[in-house]
């Protein structure tokens, strides 16, 4: 299909706050992005012309923010609302190979939903990983460098070389990727074997490094992972905030033609236009 026919659902509820720039990123790449409130998908308080169906979209995106305030545990409430009201539609969407992207709070929601890491099933009954409090105990907004560690499974990074380093800022308090302690090694090995690790935090020399290059203390420096099929992807840093060259932290030193984050959006649109 043509890129302009690719319909992207940018899902919001109260507290979502990165929807404008995320839909802008898809529009800049030529797709048709629409900001959709969860209630429009559920048909609550909507007029017929406002009601939307998930199946009518090719890509689902859960953007960053603080859905419902994140007062419980980041992402927990939106995930619970989705799971209780639209689990079947979501599983169907993923099963059809349609891409799902979660950025920052969106990543937290995908983990809470159990669709990431998504090792054994499309959606696990309980979360099997967690994005915990940053080691610093504080919200951290800072530019970070990410190495593409994926060998080709993730459909969101096909436009990046393996080992390529990109810049994207983080802005979160709960972004430390963790696996259950008693299965940590086993699950991490599985993620590696399945090619589910996508981005890792690195320093200016491209080496895995500690704080502040790794802003939260994530296991194995993990900044983003995909499910075992590669079509569901979550990352803590914000690629929509480095879509343009002039959004990068150090652009006045060396001006890139494009921002590094653009590749994420171009990769998934390339995949969708070829596959559907």
């Amino acid at each position: 299909m043509k890129v302009e026919d690719v319909k992207v659902c940018i899902l919001i509820i109260e507290g979502t706050n990165c929807e404008a720039e995320t839909s802008q990123a898809f529009r800049r790449s030529g797709a048709s992005a629409e900001i959709v409130h969860l209630k429009q998908l559920l048909g609550q308080d909507t007029k017929p012309e406002e009601t939307r169906k998930l199946e009518d979209y090719e890509i689902l995106v859960i953007p960053g923010g603080f859905s419902s305030g994140d007062y419980v545990r980041a992402g927990a409430i939106l995930a619970a609302r989705m799971k209780s009201r639209m689990e079947d539609e979501l599983v169907q969407f993923i099963d059809e190979g349609k891409p799902v992207l979660g950025i920052c709070n969106g990543f937290q929601i995908l983990v809470e939903l159990g669709v990431l890491p998504g090792i054994e099933s499309i959606m696990s009954r309980y979360p099997t990983a967690s994005l915990g409090w940053n080691d610093s105990g504080r919200f951290e907004c800072r530019p970070t460098l990410l190495e593409n560690w994926n060998k080709g499974k993730c459909i969101f990074t096909t436009k990046l070389e393996r080992g390529q380093i990109i810049q994207a800022p983080t802005a979160h308090a709960e972004g430390k990727f963790m696996l259950p302690k008693h299965r940590e090694k086993e699950l991490l090995d599985t993620l590696k074997d399945n090619d589910q690790i996508v981005f890792r935090y690195v320093d200016a020399e491209g080496q895995i490094a500690g704080y502040p290059w790794n802003p939260n203390g994530s296991l194995f420096g993990i900044a983003g992972i995909c499910n075992s099929e590669g079509n569901v992807f979550g990352m803590m840093p914000h690629p929509e905030r480095t879509y343009l060259g002039i959004q990068q932290a150090d652009w006045t030193r060396n001006v890139p033609d494009n921002g590094d984050g653009k590749a994420v959006f171009e990769s998934v649109l390339d995949h969708v236009t070829k596959k559907f």
Partner: peptide, 15 residues
Amino acid sequence: IHQYDHEVRGATVVK
């Protein structure tokens, strides 16, 4: 500065 999100909205060109 690091505790404030100075990048949300994706429009902060000079930080």
